[in-house]
Amino acid sequence: MNIKINHLSYTYPSNQPFKEDALSDINASIKSNDFVAIIGQTGSGKSTLIQNLNGLLIPTTGQVEIEDYIIKKKVKLKNIKQLRKKIGIVFQFPEYQLFEENVEKDILFGPKNFGFNEKQLAGLAKKVLEEVGLDETFLKKSPFELSGGEKRRVAIAGILAFDPEVLIVDEPTAGLDPQTANKIMELFYNLYKKQHKTIILVTHQMEDVLKYANHVMALKNGKLEAYTTPFRLFNDEKLMSHLQIEMPLILKIAKETKKKYPDLDLSKVKDIDSFVMQLKDVI
């Protein structure tokens, strides 16, 4: 599933005479099986952008092309349900969308809406629950008696259950403890690596951008300021100060280390483990 964004602008409908674009003239394309991070400060248009990708919002001008689907103003989208089945969005704080009496029903809610048959549904809840790291004892529990982290995982399982080709996640680790956050990020990375899904990650965590993403989109005031690789972004100090982001700590350490060991390959430093590996090579 290639996603093509052409001259996309979006303005929220309002009665105010003075309107400001939430997004203005975004051009980008996301290839199949890519891991893209979207960064930008609060209010920079990240969430608006992802909602334009599955027809929740329709671009004010410009269009989004996804295979045969063209999301454009005044053109009625045929079969919007199928589009949403292919592009799953995990919203910020997804635990607030749980409503069924038990976890199993809630996970199967999406697949049922998308017309999965009995055979496809059998064992599905258990399977996706295992993917997110919860065992089958959770199936019959009420979603409201779970802890915050468990709820979040159940909600993510509810999206994974209908097997979207593109998974868009909006700050999936916000408000979680580091351990759970790590597990959830690993989960998305595995979906990308093993199941070859396209992952679009909206995040404020520059460490995650460095570690997982292949490409990074940087938004500021509704404009796409950069669409590049994390390595290039973190080496462009002018751009970083313009976007008001900080370099991940591990990269800072690696840069300092490079002064002593000039052979160190910074482009391969993604996290602590890869840094240690690189360091072993040069020492």
């Binding site: 929740l56 949403r84 749980l98 409503f99 809610f109 999406g110 809406n113 998308f114 509810g158 999206i159």
Partner: peptide
């Protein structure tokens, strides 16, 4: 929006489906 992403159609559908879609909104 979250439920629409899970395939809920708040506009179309039979009465029974509509009742279900409203529940998915009201309870949360």
């Amino acid at each position: 929006k979250a439920q629409a992403s899970r395939g809920v159609d708040f506009v179309h559908g039979k009465l029974k489906e509509k009742a279900k879609s409203i529940t998915s909104l009201i309870i949360p």
